[in-house]
Simulated scan of single mutants.
Amino acid sequence: MSYKPLDSSKVYLITGAAGFIGYYMSKKLLEQGCVVVGVDNVNDYYDVKLKHARLEQLQPFDKFTFIKGDISDKPMIDSVFEEYKPNIVVNLAAQAGVRYSIENPDVYIQSNIIGFYNILEACRYHPVEHLIYASSSSVYGANKKVPFEETDFVDTPVSLYASTKKSNELMAHTYSHLYKIPATGLRFFTVYGPMGRPDMAYFGFTDKYFAGEPIKIFNNGDFDHDLYRDFTYIDDIVEGIERLIGKPPVDAVPHKVFNIGNNNPEKLMTFINTLERTLTKALGREVQFEKVYEPIKPGDVPATYASTDLLQEAVGFKPKTSIEEGLQQFADWYVEYYKKK
């Protein structure tokens, strides 16, 4: 399937532009000469320095405008749409994290429900060509059937985070039905890579290693029933979004949902061993994590595994970066960024 470059005459609004996926998405668009308006509240859910470092890499692009603000602030969102008239909206701003949602439910409702509602309302009154928004593999909850397909039943979320993402899909469907807003929801599967989120396991494991602390593995030390994750490298996620941008749904209700995952789940222990190997290579000395095994946490699911058939059918693409390749990129970046030797 031929792939046409993005239309650089359009205005792209990226929410969560200082975030992991938002930063890479903005960068990719800017490198193609597109006009990008980035919005982010730069909250302190994780190290703010990393968010600033990402933004610093976007600042040199003269077609980049950054607005510090929260999507739950309706007047701010309305004024951004009023002033910049985005053609394409990629909503990646959200309060992330499954475990954090157990201790801090308020911020999830604020950002993921109210914030997303504000985006939908803005798209209603300032029509856009395509709204792409982040959903999550967590909507599959405790589904036993693998791989997860977009048509699967997803009414059994096991965390508030998952509930808010499922709500986003329902809200977007309603707005597409009522106001014909072309919208695409993306169920991301465990995204990783350089400049990633420090709250993610691979990043935390690396931090712990350099702090001389053991890593906690939530699988009871049961290797026959290890956690499986469909780890998806950041470049694959960005390419998937990029290809979908120019393909807004055209059905009677113009709303679609796609998985973006690696379609190749790995045991958590395989992932950890690969991370040890890639750090060994990056440092030029042997790295071995000290491991402590604990019970699975509430809200965690035993396996995530994406079927990517729909995505491939729609845009001729499926993620392909191996964990060996992706983790090497991360390890090299980490050692350089944090000046470890």
Rank of each mutant, 00 (worst) to 15 (best):
326 G>N: 04
35 V>W: 10
171 M>I: 12
103 E>W: 00
102 I>K: 11
261 G>I: 01
31 E>M: 13
330 F>I: 04
104 N>C: 08
50 L>V: 11
306 A>T: 04
166 K>A: 14
135 S>N: 01
274 T>V: 14
184 T>K: 02
300 D>I: 01
318 K>N: 09
10 K>G: 04
233 Y>M: 05
64 F>I: 03
318 K>I: 12
120 L>Q: 03
30 L>R: 06
212 G>T: 04
189 F>A: 02
87 N>V: 02
175 Y>F: 15
292 V>Y: 09
191 V>N: 03
78 D>R: 12
144 K>P: 00
190 T>E: 13
322 S>C: 11
98 V>Q: 02
107 V>G: 04
18 A>E: 09
295 P>H: 10
104 N>K: 14
182 P>S: 07
43 N>C: 07
333 W>L: 08
300 D>M: 14
189 F>M: 03
141 G>H: 08
275 L>Q: 10
272 I>F: 08
248 P>L: 02
309 D>H: 12
47 D>W: 09
10 K>P: 04
127 P>M: 04
57 Q>C: 07
161 Y>M: 08
5 P>T: 10
10 K>M: 13
86 P>H: 09
209 Y>K: 02
245 I>A: 03
158 V>T: 15
66 F>R: 04
99 R>C: 00
34 C>A: 13
245 I>D: 05
167 S>Q: 09
180 K>C: 01
43 N>A: 12
15 T>R: 06
78 D>C: 09
179 Y>G: 09
169 E>C: 07
141 G>D: 10
285 R>M: 13
239 E>Q: 12
240 G>M: 06
129 E>V: 03
50 L>A: 11
243 R>M: 12
218 F>C: 13
47 D>Q: 11
311 L>A: 05
297 K>C: 01
38 G>L: 03
71 I>W: 02
101 S>T: 05
279 L>Q: 09
91 N>D: 15
194 P>G: 05
24 Y>A: 09
135 S>V: 03
305 Y>H: 15
138 S>K: 08
39 V>Q: 03
60 P>K: 10
131 L>H: 07
297 K>Q: 15
28 K>T: 13
76 M>R: 09
130 H>A: 03
56 E>C: 03
270 T>P: 00
106 D>L: 13
240 G>T: 05
318 K>P: 00
286 E>P: 07
170 L>V: 13
34 C>S: 13
80 V>S: 07
110 Q>P: 00
66 F>M: 08
15 T>E: 05
46 Y>F: 14
146 V>R: 10
281 K>F: 12
41 N>Q: 14
179 Y>C: 08
144 K>W: 00
328 Q>Y: 12
269 M>G: 12
174 T>K: 13
250 V>R: 14
176 S>R: 06
73 D>T: 11
144 K>M: 12
213 E>T: 08
298 P>Q: 14
191 V>L: 06
32 Q>W: 10
